[in-house]
């Protein structure tokens, strides 16, 4: 039964990915001005356009092109970017541009997750253990404030405090990509701090709400009536039942990091995947936009899928659907 449910979710996940790929393809391909036009730009003549279109397979009908694109995508051939195109060349292969950028973004997201998840779960739990106390109220108010302002605002104020008033760190992280040791830590510090703050406030709020929700269930009431100490109730009874929902919350919030990363990489000029995509949008480098959007959406869908699985695995009722 469990296997069946998992297989079903996997099938749904793959179907969603396919639909998303169609949407991305339609969004960028059906509109006027194809890649051949963009690559040739001013130098376009009807003959050179036709030749390049034939070379890139753009003379095929849209659905054929979609399957070509999808097939290439599966085999890791992401096409060519507009960047570096000119006489005789048709541009840099996208996969070459993506790999170093992706590595940077994964490093940033990894550090953020490693710091934010334990920190926010601990604070959320503490707030739920002592509801109504000063600690709880501070956590609730701060996080409410933080989630109702945009990410770039958090970043702006952080730059103001840490870089301008305290002067601890540079305001922007210009990375060449081969920093090591202390240099790397300094470059990563501000983007990480911003993302940690943004991600933690969500996780904290939801962890607190989840644990409080479990705390209002009958068996906890029973434990209280039996006289079990508060700490023991939380750590032995409530926490184990809240783990599923909490993993769910964590995975969902890591998925929301996708949009946070876009903003933060732009502010701090961090050479990651999101910055690459924003630059591609600004220069209207459609093949590159397609590739980046596909990677981000796939990550997002995988994380949502993990969240979904976590809630199935942790809930016996969902594990054995009637």
């Amino acid at each position: 039964m469990l296997l069946h449910a998992m297989l079903r979710r996997i099938a749904v996940g793959i179907a969603t990915l396919l639909v998303v790929s169609v949407l991305i393809f339609i969004g960028t391909s059906v509109l006027p001005g194809d890649v051949a036009n963009i690559i040739l730009g001013q130098m376009a003549t009807p003959e050179s356009l036709a030749a390049l279109r034939a070379k890139l397979g753009l003379d095929q009908p849209a659905h054929v092109r979609y399957f070509f694109w999808l097939g290439n995508l599966m085999t890791g051939d992401l096409g060519v970017s507009k960047a570096g195109s000119g006489f005789g060349t048709i541009g840099t292969p996208i996969s070459e541009m993506l790999v170093p950028r992706m590595w940077n973004t994964i490093r940033l997201a990894g550090v953020v997750a490693a710091v934010a998840v334990p920190l926010s779960m601990a604070l959320g739990l503490l707030a739920a253990m002592y509801p109504g106390t000063r600690l709880d109220r501070i956590v609730t108010f701060t996080t409410l404030g933080l989630i109702s302002v945009p990410e770039f605002l958090v970043a702006t104020f952080l730059v103001l405090v840490v870089a301008v008033y305290l002067g601890w760190l540079p305001a922007t992280a210009y990375m060449s990509g081969n920093e090591t040791g202390w240099q790397l830590v300094k470059a990563l510090a501000m983007p990480t701090l911003t993302l940690v703050i943004v991600a933690s406030s969500q996780i904290m709020r939801m962890t607190r709400a989840t644990v409080l929700n479990v705390m209002s269930s009958p068996y906890i009431e029973m434990a209280i009536l039996k006289g079990v100490p508060r700490q023991r109730i939380i750590l032995r009874h409530a926490l184990f039942n809240a783990i599923g929902p909490i993993v769910n919350v964590v995975a969902l919030n890591l998925a929301y990091l996708v949009s946070g990363v876009v903003i933060v990489e732009t502010i701090f000029a961090y050479p990651g995947l999101a910055k690459l995509m924003i630059d591609a949008v600004q220069t209207r480098d459609l093949p590159l936009v397609q590739a980046c959007a596909m990677i981000f959406c796939a990550t997002y869908i995988v994380l949502i899928f993990i969240a979904d699985m976590a809630s199935i695995l942790s809930n016996p009722r969902l594990r054995h659907p009637k």
């Binding site: 969004g27 509109l31 996708v258 459609l286 869908i301």
Partner: peptide, 21 residues
Amino acid sequence: NDAFLSMPTIMLGLVVIAAIG
């Protein structure tokens, strides 16, 4: 609707703006 919801909003926005300005 689910297909549209399964993309991060900012990605949807970026793809469309890349295409039509």
